[in-house]
Design a protein around this nucleic acid. Structure first.
Lengths: 210, 210
DNA sequence: TAAACTACTTAACACTGTTAAGTAGTTTTG
DNA sequence: CAAAACTACTTAACAGTGTTAAGTAGTTTA
């Protein structure tokens, strides 16, 4: 379990983050304590505080790792010409990301801690990671409007709605609230099917706005 | 701070819940510890465990209190004849509830703990509180379909979508993720306005499905 | 009167995040 | 070259968390 100490003065900050990532993905947020991270890398818990301000600082770093993965996935979508196809692909990918990386999704979009860390920093208290994603979504929505979608609607409100619709879906899944009401689904499908059927409703409704 | 001990053998279980409610609403979930609840009612922390199995048991009880408030608000809506008007009113009330009772909203729809408690109970592992609300929503959706809304759509998928859309909106607000991207809104409105504008998009899209 | 039961408490376990103070080992400086 | 300063880390502790085993008054039953 315990990784042997790092010689050659590697950047311990990134070694800590790597250990945090491992524990976080394997055991979840709850089980990722400062003491366990320290044990994992073979240092005392207080050493962590020489490289990260507090635990929120670490979960903010994890949240950034998550956004790195998400942006990597979103990048190829910039090539999709048709804005509505791009919008649909964005939604699908967002859902896929949440299903594939539920722990990262939680830290990115469901937990206050990373944002608390941002607010604790005097300068740079902007959530650039989130704003970048929403800006990309907004531009796609505006482009869709030039093609006749979302007639006479406020593009910002449409953007927030689109985000909220997929976020609501995946967050209800991640917290297991969807599983708990599966009795209302006559034919019990997989959770993924239910989520995608529901996403299809969003797409169909958006289509009917043309 | 410390309430004098209860004589006359009142039901201590409800006294504990009352203290938990007070701390929970005033200080939030994080600050509501077993030890603080015990101090509040003037008993030792272990006494709590004679009336509640564990902390999840208490947050499940709080979650039930929340559903009590929500159901009370939903009740008058059963009288609304027009199903689409009822659907809109349901959404509006749901959002209002979340804004007025963010702590209860979290415990009802955003936290795993109450559901974990349900799963820890051998019998009765159904989330009846949630199912009741969703069933009410589903029936309204089905009724809307008889009036020409949601043509050729799966009513269950529409129900989940409607729920997810409003849940996504209010949960992004509660976790302060919406506040953090307020730079994308040109005219910085109140959070309530932004949420209602976004809700209006849902209503407009649903209207265009007729 | 003695046993049993009720309602509660004390003390402890095993954790958590976090900080003050201290300590080797290296580097810089007079 | 020795003394001061700095680097990188550790030990010990604080104040808190949920939770459980064991014990103790006071009441009730036998």
């Amino acid at each position: 379990m315990i990784v042997k100490k790092i010689k050659h003065k590697e950047d311990l900050r990134s070694v800590i983050l790597e250990a945090a990532k491992k524990l976080f993905v394997q055991e979840g947020y709850e089980a990722t304590s400062i003491r366990k991270i320290a044990k994992e890398i073979g240092f005392s818990p207080t050493t962590i505080y020489l490289y990260y301000k507090d635990k929120n600082d670490i979960v903010y770093a994890l949240h950034q790792v998550g956004f790195g993965i998400l942006k990597e996935r979103f990048f190829p979508l910039m090539a999709v010409e048709n804005p509505f196809e791009r919008l649909k692909a964005l939604g699908k990918l967002y859902i896929q990301f949440a299903f594939a990386n539920p722990e990262y999704y939680q830290v990115m979009f469901m937990m206050k801690e990373p944002l608390s860390f941002l607010n604790s920093q005097k300068e740079n208290n902007e959530w650039i990671e989130g704003e970048l994603v929403i800006e990309f979504l907004k531009n796609t929505v505006i482009e869709c409007q030039t093609k006749g979608y979302f007639k006479e609607m406020d593009p910002v409100a449409v953007t927030i709605h689109a985000w909220a619709a997929v976020h609501g879906l995946v967050s209800l899944h991640v917290t297991q609230h969807l599983d708990c009401i599966k009795d209302v689904f006559e034919n019990i499908d997989t959770m993924e099917e239910i989520v995608y059927n529901s996403f299809q409703v969003l797409v169909d409704l958006m289509n009917s706005s043309k």
